[in-house]
Design a protein around this nucleic acid. Structure first.
Lengths: 205, 205
DNA sequence: ACTTTGAGCGTACACCTGTACGCTAATTTA
DNA sequence: TAAATTAGCGTACAGGTGTACGCTCAAAGT
């Protein structure tokens, strides 16, 4: 009972989402796409678009959701690798850069719409990134027993630095990306070390 | 020999730039402006626009330049205040937030186009922010004798955190902005402390 | 077998965009 | 004073946009 019809519909819907992702690059953000262009790339008539999405916004939010999925998969991958031992920071950065490289357009929409002009988009991206932050906050509270407040500030700083580096890395050559990654590792260590120092200062009194 | 004519022309040019700035807000970025909308707001015919700018891009780059000016004024203000003594980090953050609050649209274009779709825009914004970073790098090298490499990484981290917080602060109420500023101060201290720790580790061997 | 549903299409429309072209009228230059 | 320059305007056009409307025809439901 798959439904030949439902199956075909899903296929077209995917074609639309893929078409939209494929049109993203350094010079073309989501907001520069048009319903007609997306429909053209997906090889359907412009008006057929409405059979799948209410408007372009709905398509965009779907894409952000898929971005969230990628993010969560990335977290899982990082966690697994970290279990094997080694520098958590290094492993995390390497994993991030790998996933970024193989899903550039997913990150393009996340990184761009994070500070975009549509409030719903910003909210959606913020929601996805919040997973990251809260997971990291918990991890830090547990393994390095920080004040909740300090753990949160630390986690936010780490995530800010990582995503900012990600945005910069998106349109770099591999060599430059490596330099960037190394510098990012140093910056993350700064935050970790500094947070530790602040915590100790709190504990001492 | 002011030139009645040149004077009037400059006035109209300003009207165009101001019109563009005034149309920016949380929901409207520079790229969502059109030549016609700007001309309308400035009360000139669309085609007269070309008497002042080759196209919208040229207008935009002018706006970014003005943003750079604001940034440099801010630096001067911060330096002056810091001379009077007190926490450099706190003073810097407060100054930043003040200037942000009184020039929201200047920051809007800087913060948005920093990760926008136009390469020339990104380059222009990067150039302006680079002033910031290099000034900070020098300052840190001098007052806290860091490795040039470490000083640079530290300065970049600080600037990243500040501008990221700025973007978030833009559309917040005053109360929330205060919370954000306090957290930012903590994060900056983390970086400063952590950088110091890393430097000491280097010196010890 | 007969009816209902719905994905996809084609046509059509109103609206907005950038910009080419030629004119006017006031300032500047000679 | 006469000639040249030019900021600003109005008209006009081609091209892109979202979307309303009604049709088809194959699949699903009865």
């Amino acid at each position: 009972m798959t439904g030949v019809r439902a199956q075909q519909k899903e296929k077209t819907r995917r074609a639309l989402v893929d078409a939209a992702f494929n049109q993203l690059n350094a010079e073309r953000s989501f907001s520069s796409l048009s319903l007609r262009k997306v429909a053209r790339e997906a090889k359907i008539a412009p008006t057929s678009f409405y059979r799948h999405f209410k408007d372009m916004n709905e398509l965009g939010l779907t894409m952000v959701d898929e971005g969230g999925l990628t993010l969560r998969q990335m977290m899982r991958k990082g966690r697994q690798r970290a279990e094997a031992g080694g520098s958590v920071i290094r492993i995390s950065v390497d994993t991030f850069m790998e996933v970024l490289e193989s899903n550039p357009n997913v990150f393009r929409i996340l990184l761009h719409e994070r500070s975009g002009t549509s409030a719903p988009f910003r909210a959606a991206v913020a929601r996805e990134i919040e997973h990251f932050i809260s997971e990291l906050t918990h991890y830090t509270e547990a393994t390095a027993n920080r004040t909740p407040e300090l753990a949160r500030a630390q986690a936010e700083a780490l995530v800010t630095l990582v995503f900012n580096a990600g945005a910069a890395a998106l349109d770099m050559k591999r060599v430059d990306r490596k330099v960037l990654a190394d510098r990012l590792v140093i910056q993350l260590r700064m935050v970790a070390k500094g947070s530790e120092a602040l915590q100790q200062k709190l504990d001492r009194r």
